[in-house]
């Protein structure tokens, strides 16, 4: 920084066309390098993990990778059960978290006065800073044992009922797809809420007033003025929540039940991609380790695609907002 100072003071008043001082250019290069680091890291993640997973891809082939059997002892490493578990738990989380998040976002922006909104935001922030491993600890030691009783009564009640029986019938277990989905729902609620709230807050006050001036009730105002504006952005927020739910590791690893099965029974134990990596990577070697690394590659690809789509939607709706 001292060079910058010296350079600056050395500027002769007449030299209007002089070259930019070295310190200034150096700083720019430094800043650019830091910015490029983001791209470098993303590319390196893709290359290095794919490299480490290559023996899995080459020994299993496409059909092996996307097969249902995962049995390290027998040398079978099919990923489908984990992909299924990842998607199903994320879907459960989204179904539960989105209505709640959008509801809270509307409560904050449209219903309560600012001095009430602040404590509500604090609560949501508190929810966001509870670490994943603490959710997992609570989930496995407190929540799962408690909800197992509820699962088994629901399970016996719906036995034999078509569809419901297949989804919620026995076998039931406290550590299951559904428990993981619920815990993930708690964990993604803060991000979906705060993004939805940001989107809804960009609706111009004058459009709200336009609807109110026509004698609309609050609900009618929300449907007429807020919803058309924020639809796109909320879809983006939901997708970001989906990406988070799919990649959430430790809580899922603790409560999902760790059983590589594909079943329609949501109350049955299952497994997901991040959970199996966390639980088994430590003991793995050879193709086993490559397979887990490969699951990481697949997870990376899935979440990156979802995030790119989601951010694209959010940015586009923000741009349209400004353009309108």
């Amino acid at each position: 920084m001292s060079t910058i100072t010296r350079e600056d003071q050395a500027v002769p008043a007449s030299a209007l066309s002089e070259r930019r001082p070295l310190g200034d250019r150096g700083f720019q290069v430094l800043a650019l390098a830091a910015g490029l680091l983001v791209l470098v890291i993303l590319v390196l993640i893709a290359i290095s993990t794919t490299q480490q997973a290559s023996s899995w891809f080459s020994t299993e082939g496409v059909t092996g990778v996307f097969s249902t059997t995962w049995n390290p002892a027998a040398g079978k490493f099919g990923a489908l059960a984990f992909i299924y578990g990842t998607l199903i738990t994320a879907a459960i989380a989204i179904v539960m978290a989105v209505p709640v998040s959008v509801g809270i976002a509307l409560l904050l922006t449209e219903v309560v006065p600012p001095r009430w909104a602040r404590p509500i935001v604090y609560v949501i922030d508190l929810l966001a800073v509870v670490p994943s491993v603490v959710w997992g600890l609570w989930g496995i030691l407190v929540f799962a044992p408690w909800i197992a009783g509820i699962y088994s009564s629901i399970g016996s009640a719906v036995t034999g009922v078509p569809v419901l029986g297949a989804l919620f019938g026995p076998p039931t277990s406290g550590a299951s797809f559904f428990t993981a989905g619920i815990i993930l729902a708690f964990m993604i609620t803060p991000i979906v809420t705060s993004l939805s709230r940001e989107v809804i807050a960009t609706v111009p006050a004058i459009e709200r007033e336009g609807a109110y001036a026509l004698g609309a009730t609050r609900l009618e105002m929300i449907r007429g003025a807020v919803w058309p504006h924020s639809q796109g952005g909320i879809v983006g927020a939901v997708l970001l929540g989906l990406g988070r739910a799919m990649g959430e590791t430790i809580a899922a690893a603790l409560v999902i039940g760790s059983s590589a099965t594909i079943t329609s029974h949501l109350f049955a134990p299952g497994d997901s991609m991040p959970a199996v990596i966390a639980n088994e990577f430590g003991e793995a070697s050879g193709v086993f380790r490559a397979g887990l690394m490969g699951l990481g590659v697949l997870l990376f690809i899935m979440t990156i695609i979802i995030n790119i789509i989601a951010r694209g939607i959010v940015q586009r709706s923000a741009r349209r907002q400004r353009g309108a």
Binding site: V38, I45, M293, L299, F300, I306, N307
Partner: peptide, 23 residues
């Protein structure tokens, strides 16, 4: 870069672990 920084916040933390393990 700005867009990819947003996207990077969505990279699962376990993938970061695998990445550093590899390199």
């Amino acid at each position: 870069i700005g867009f990819m920084a947003d996207v990077m916040t969505g990279v699962p933390s376990i993938v970061m672990g695998l990445f550093i393990f590899s390199i």
